[in-house]
Design a protein around this nucleic acid. Structure first.
Lengths: 198, 198, 198, 198
DNA sequence: AATGAATGAGCCTTCATTCAT
DNA sequence: TATGAATGAAGGCTCATTCAT
């Protein structure tokens, strides 16, 4: 049993816990999800969780951090030629299918609501949103430049902001009307995206 | 003390409770808000609340229903000549000022998250969203007609849908970045609203 | 149900809890005594205790405060002609009989041990000991004065200090050797008390 | 690795554990001290402790036994010409300095309180106190004899008893009033010791 | 109509102890 | 011999809900 194995073990356990917690938080909400339920889903005793996380709150924070890291990674992988309308439609499809690797829209809402009460979470989300907006604005500028077009930095920020609103608005919509017709969704995107990302 | 007075009394009490609950739910979230805290804000005993509501859940439902009714009323009052960009900016300003008569954005998120767990709430929200979208689509068609323009019913629905996304996306933004600059907000609206509401 | 009755009720409940807690603390120690066991002895639900005390620690503090008040009252009632040796023998007898109105020696030890860890308790005990020592020193001076003897204030303090040591030492002894012979006890007091209280 | 080495190893380990436990028990009390904290201070894993002690309780018992053995050894080393007042003042100084080789006063109180609950501990303490009292009484008789004075055996027992009370009373005092002035302490001893040990 | 005392279930967390390695 | 992951049983505390008054 070498050091790597130990690290892997611990990492795997933390991951098991975070996945289980994510599932529970989505299913019952942060407050209603009990440590016992998380332990059950993670298939371990409740006490063991505390070997890997200081508290229930620490788990929430860890989940938030992981989501943010994933989001940044997604933006970093954006290609200049990406078909954005298709990308957003794919995102919605992943939301609907409950894909584990994608930010869950219900979790997004709950995390956001939490931010209005917990300063630590508020700071984390606010900073992360600023960063991802800048990341995306930079991408917009570069993509335009590669087409010989010059975009003002402020304008790029505003467009990135608009995209955040659009995507998060969609997330709310999907949660409130999961059966929303694909047709209307596509039409809406076709109408809005051009002014947002050109 | 005639029957009307009794009804008024009961209605007033229910209202006191709902206002207090709204305040507590915004401040602490549905789950973290205790019946005791609601009773304290409503300036009555905890036990008395149960004379007017069956359970804490019933209060949540009542609040949701009231919010939906308010929203429909707002749409019904829309004038054909309304300046929409200004209207949305005013809405955001009311959000920020914590106006009591306006749907609170944090509450919006929490309610929406709740919908993904409680079928009753899900049905209520879904139906209400459909209705308000239709209300607004109708308004769009009529406004266009009064300008001699004919809008397709489907197109109107799509535009109403886009507006829902935009406003709810803004709500998420305001909760996550309360300090968001008015400037960027105005720019974003100036960019998006024309394609949405013409 | 007037205000007095409410106050009486609350006071009676607090008393029930304190008595039960005292019993449990003596029987199992502060840490080992569970809120559940206290509730059972007090014949009420565990949750109800929290209507009258903020926490388990608050109960400990309340017990300490009550003991101190009792001790001061005892000193205040001292008569100039009191037979001290007899008084101390009576005290030991009450210790042995488990009299509820007398400071329990085991509790004395546990409270004292607690003081070396909890600053709040430490401060309370330290201050109380100073006060009761002064009370007793004053009594010594006055008793001597009434016999036409003048005692130096410092000397009186030292004698009061000695009496504290003697009585607390006896408490330790009684706890460790409950079967200690009355004879040796009386002899020891006859030997020591004269130099302490004259 | 011969048998002696194995024994030494085991003894050393037991000692490490007992020292660590003593430290933890003094700092947090028997109950509040966790096996994990003892293991950490002893610089070993929690599980390993169970190779040397059956349970946490067994550790407590071992510590008590060791303290008793130490005390007897101290008495055995008493010289006829010892300056007792000085000796007691030194003892108090060691208490205050937290000397590791001296019975800690807080531990003394906690051990004593434990005796009123655990018959095994009660018996051990009671017997040990009787033995040390006899040891000391014998020393008193011999010292007197070496000065040509004859002391009655019962009287010697009573004096030894008085000394136990005095010292344990001092221990309580030191725990409850750590800042106690050296001056008053010396005065008190000067007043009491002569009648106790002559 | 109104109070608030009372309950009981459940929550987060800790910890002595065991055991596979 | 030694580790530390794992468990399960409490423990302190909160809270929605009920009910006698």
């Amino acid at each position: 049993m070498n050091a790597d194995a130990v690290i892997d073990r611990a990492t795997a356990q933390r991951d098991r816990i975070l996945c289980a917690a994510r599932r529970c938080f989505i299913d019952h909400g942060f407050h209603a999800a009990s440590m016992a339920s998380i332990a059950e889903v993670a298939d371990m005793s409740a006490g063991l969780i505390y070997r890997y996380f200081d508290s229930k709150n620490a788990i929430i924070l860890a989940i938030i951090e992981r989501q943010l890291a994933d989001k940044r990674a997604d933006i970093a992988e954006l290609q200049p030629g990406t078909d954005f309308a298709q990308g957003v439609r794919d995102l919605v499809a992943r939301w609907r299918s409950g894909d584990v690797r994608t930010m869950n829209p219900t979790l997004l809402l709950e995390m956001s609501a939490l931010a209005s009460r917990d300063p630590q979470i508020a700071a984390a989300l606010c900073e992360a949103d600023r960063v991802t907006r800048s990341d995306f604005a930079t991408w917009l500028v570069q993509r335009a430049a590669s087409s010989g077009v010059k975009i003002d930095a402020d304008a790029a920020q505003t467009r990135a902001f608009a995209l955040q609103c659009l995507i998060e608005g969609l997330a709310v919509r999907i949660v409130r009307e999961p059966g929303m017709s694909d047709h209307m969704l596509a039409d809406m995107l076709a109408m809005n995206l051009p002014v947002v990302i050109g």
